[in-house]
Amino acid sequence: MIQRFIKLGEGYNDLYELLELARTNTERIHMLLQLDTTIAERPMSSVVLILQPASPGKMMPLYICLEGILNPSYKETERYHLIKKLCEELEINIHRLEVKPSHTFSEEVLYFQYLIGVLRMNKYIPPLQ
Score class of each variant (00 low, 15 high):
Glu10Ile: 15
Ile94Glu: 00
Leu66Glu: 08
Met44Val: 04
Gln129Asn: 07
Glu78Cys: 11
Tyr80Ser: 01
Lys100Thr: 05
Val118Tyr: 02
Gln3Leu: 08
Glu76Cys: 03
Glu41Met: 15
Glu78Ala: 14
Lys75Tyr: 12
Glu89Ser: 08
Leu21Glu: 04
Ala54Asp: 11
Gln3Trp: 10
Ala22Ile: 09
Asn71Arg: 08
Asn25Trp: 12
Ser106Thr: 13
Gln113His: 15
Tyr111Pro: 00
Gly57Thr: 07
Gly9Phe: 12
Gly9Glu: 10
Asn93His: 09
Glu107Pro: 06
Asp14Cys: 04
Glu17His: 12
Thr37Trp: 02
Pro43Val: 02
Gly68Gln: 05
Arg42Ala: 09
Ile6Asn: 03
Met31Arg: 10
Leu70Val: 11
Leu70His: 11
Lys100His: 08
Phe105Lys: 04
Leu86Asp: 01
Thr24Pro: 09
Ser102Ala: 08
Leu115Tyr: 01
Arg28Trp: 03
Tyr16Gly: 14
Gly68Tyr: 01
Ser55Met: 13
Asn25Pro: 02
Leu86Phe: 07
Lys123Met: 08
Val99Cys: 00
Lys85Ile: 13
Lys123Ser: 07
Leu66His: 06
Glu88Gln: 14
Thr37Lys: 05
Arg42Phe: 10
Asn25Gly: 04
Lys85Ser: 13
Ile92Thr: 02
Pro53Leu: 04
Ala22Leu: 06
Thr26Arg: 15
Glu67Met: 09
Tyr12Met: 14
Glu88Met: 14
Ile94Ala: 04
Met44Glu: 11
Met44Trp: 03
Leu33Lys: 03
Gly68Asn: 03
Gly9Trp: 12
Asp36Tyr: 06
His95Met: 04
Leu18Tyr: 03
Glu89Asn: 11
